[in-house]
Simulated assay, not measured.
Amino acid sequence: MPWWKPGRGPRAVRWSSLLLVAACGLLVVVCLVAALRGRPLALAPAAVAAALALREVRRLQRARRPG
């Protein structure tokens, strides 16, 4: 079965999860650059975005485990 069709099993690509992790990663980078340029309050949204990305990656890892 092709990878783009649903029902491919645990190795199917979850595009919404991939998009969320990529967007959070980009936001973390932007916030860290802003923090380095003298805006320390930018660390708060960076921490939230990093936590969301980490949670999503761990959820995907749990979903791939057999059993």
Results as ranks from 00 to 15, higher is better:
1 M>Q: 06
1 M>P: 08
2 P>E: 01
2 P>W: 02
3 W>H: 09
3 W>Y: 14
4 W>C: 07
4 W>P: 01
4 W>F: 14
4 W>D: 09
4 W>G: 04
5 K>D: 09
5 K>P: 06
5 K>Y: 10
5 K>I: 15
5 K>Q: 13
5 K>A: 14
5 K>C: 11
5 K>W: 14
6 P>V: 02
6 P>N: 02
6 P>K: 02
7 G>H: 03
7 G>A: 01
8 R>E: 09
9 G>S: 05
11 R>T: 12
11 R>K: 13
11 R>G: 10
11 R>I: 07
11 R>F: 14
12 A>K: 09
12 A>T: 07
12 A>P: 01
13 V>L: 11
13 V>R: 12
15 W>F: 15
15 W>H: 14
15 W>E: 15
16 S>W: 15
17 S>I: 06
17 S>M: 07
19 L>I: 07
19 L>C: 07
20 L>D: 08
20 L>I: 07
20 L>W: 09
20 L>M: 07
21 V>Y: 04
22 A>S: 13
22 A>I: 04
22 A>H: 06
23 A>N: 10
24 C>H: 08
25 G>K: 00
27 L>C: 11
28 V>G: 01
28 V>K: 06
28 V>R: 03
29 V>N: 11
30 V>R: 13
30 V>P: 04
31 C>K: 01
31 C>R: 01
31 C>F: 04
31 C>D: 07
32 L>I: 14
32 L>K: 14
32 L>N: 15
34 A>C: 09
35 A>Y: 01
35 A>R: 00
35 A>N: 00
36 L>E: 09
36 L>I: 13
36 L>A: 11
37 R>Q: 07
37 R>Y: 08
37 R>I: 10
37 R>E: 05
38 G>N: 00
38 G>R: 00
38 G>L: 00
38 G>P: 00
38 G>Y: 00
39 R>Y: 10
39 R>G: 02
39 R>P: 03
39 R>M: 08
40 P>G: 04
40 P>W: 06
40 P>Q: 04
41 L>H: 10
41 L>R: 15
42 A>I: 00
43 L>D: 01
43 L>Q: 02
44 A>D: 08
46 A>N: 01
46 A>E: 03
47 A>E: 04
47 A>T: 05
47 A>M: 06
47 A>K: 02
47 A>L: 11
47 A>D: 04
48 V>F: 08
49 A>Q: 02
49 A>F: 03
50 A>Y: 07
50 A>I: 06
50 A>E: 03
50 A>H: 07
51 A>P: 02
51 A>Y: 02
51 A>V: 06
52 L>I: 10
52 L>S: 05
53 A>Y: 03
53 A>S: 12
53 A>T: 08
54 L>F: 12
54 L>T: 13
55 R>N: 08
55 R>M: 08
55 R>W: 15
56 E>Y: 01
56 E>R: 05
56 E>W: 00
57 V>A: 10
57 V>I: 10
57 V>T: 08
58 R>V: 10
58 R>T: 03
58 R>L: 14
59 R>A: 14
59 R>C: 05
60 L>R: 13
60 L>M: 13
60 L>Y: 13
60 L>A: 15
60 L>N: 15
61 Q>I: 06
61 Q>Y: 09
61 Q>W: 08
62 R>T: 04
62 R>Q: 10
64 R>V: 08
64 R>M: 09
64 R>H: 13
64 R>T: 05
64 R>I: 04
66 P>W: 14
66 P>T: 15
66 P>V: 13
66 P>I: 11
67 G>L: 06
67 G>E: 02
